[in-house]
Amino acid sequence: MPQLDPNFFGTQLFWLAVSFIVFYVLMSKVALPRIGDVLEMRAEKITGDLDAAAKARDEAKAALAHYEKSLADARAEAQRANREAADAASAASNARLAEVGTRISAEIAAAERRIGEAREAAMSNVRSMAVEVAQAAYGKLVGGQADTARLDALVERALKGDAR
């Protein structure tokens, strides 16, 4: 077995030591720092991006909260203005309604009064005419003059719905 030939142990160990030391220097001074730097750079970039994303998210949340607050404020303001306008409108219409109501009742009262007066006038005309008709009918039927006072009383009674 060539592996057990001690003649070559010296050269193999010598070149193993040389190669390994050279390789160690190449790795620790050249290759590994490059890889380490890139990995570190990537880790930093990822952490930085995550932080930026978290910050942006917080900002967006704050903006949303602000927006919702303004929206609520605007809504409350609108409701208040709406209610005030409605109140004012109903007060105005109530006042106008009341005014119209009074005017109408005044007109109704005046009309009722006029109707009463007209009825009074009509009734007194009817009475005097009834007395004259009764006088004339008495003259024709009985002859002579009837007692005016008595006729008056009878007509009065008849007008009151008590005729007989």
Partner: peptide, 30 residues
Amino acid sequence: IDVSYTNSALWMTIAIGLATLFLVLGMRQR
């Protein structure tokens, strides 16, 4: 001690050369 450069030493040299190139050239774009 005989320290002649042998085929064993040659392949050690090739191994460290290739491994270094593999890592350094692989990382050249960073």
